[in-house]
Design a protein around this nucleic acid. Sequence first.
DNA 1: CCCGAAGATGTTATAGAGTAACATCAAATG
DNA 2: CATTTGATGTTACTCTATAACATCTTCGGG
Lengths: 139, 139
Amino acid sequence: MAANLLNARDMALHACLCAASRPLSAYDLLDARRAAEPRIAPTAIYRSLTKLEKAGLVQRVATLNAWIARPPKLPAEPSVLAICDSCGAVEQVAEAGVIQAVTDAVTRSGFHPNRPVIEVHGHCTRCESETDPIRSAPR
Amino acid sequence: MAANLLNARDMALHACLCAASRPLSAYDLLDARRAAEPRIAPTAIYRSLTKLEKAGLVQRVATLNAWIARPPKLPAEPSVLAICDSCGAVEQVAEAGVIQAVTDAVTRSGFHPNRPVIEVHGHCTRCESETDPIRSAPR
DNA sequence: CCCGAAGATGTTATAGAGTAACATCAAATG
DNA sequence: CATTTGATGTTACTCTATAACATCTTCGGG
Ligand SMILES: [Zn+2]
Ligand SMILES: [Zn+2]
Ligand SMILES: [Zn+2]
Ligand SMILES: [Zn+2]
């Protein structure tokens, strides 16, 4: 056995996500991959993404139905995602304490947490400074 | 103007979600509603759900592509969701402090939070006590 | 009362995300 | 070599969500 290693396609998809400034959908990746593999199907993309996710190299963005590459540090654990609704950029906030606080909270009510998903929509620093000084609709 | 009030259909969909023990997809609701309105289309369901969401009466479960009714208390604010992957039940944990901790964390990195989505998958008390004493696959 | 504007709702069609099922291939094992 | 087992290819489909446009309703100004 032991064929859970990443192949050239997996690496290519990961490189795609690393190069992107925004999350990519599985079908974005499919289109990108078609240049090298014209007959590739969605199934193959999803199989690669599952493998990469298990390896801690990519993370799904549930509220966008899209995927991001994880930074080389902290390979396995999930991140808190800060998603800018203006420019689409996603920042991965490594706040282990916050994740712990969330799992503690649900544990307190008898729940047995396993996979936390924490995504915050809003605006990144750049977009906020561009749009907010104007302040539309005060009442 | 002022027709953002809930109509009979909205109320019926909300009642549907209230009666369910698990989240329902928009198409579950569509099927349920077909009994009363045979020609109703997905668009109408989504329009109702958007209205109900704005009213704080329902909440979307991003990681399930499904919807739940919110308890009558705390009508507007989002909840931390504890989602049992065995029985499908979703508990809404009213932990304002935890949500604050999450928004604080992203604010600390310069982000301007607007809509937090916090969903924790795992097992509820009942399912955990049913399955875990057996302890399968120790090695 | 008539008319137009603005919003709500109906209707059709389509886009987008994800998976089931099965065929085929490749490697390991003895 | 023959068998088995997992990976990959291929087809077709299900499920989720929205675009686009038609129609109807409501309401205020003339
Ligand atoms: Zn931005
Ligand atoms: Zn802002
Ligand atoms: Zn359960
Ligand atoms: Zn468990």
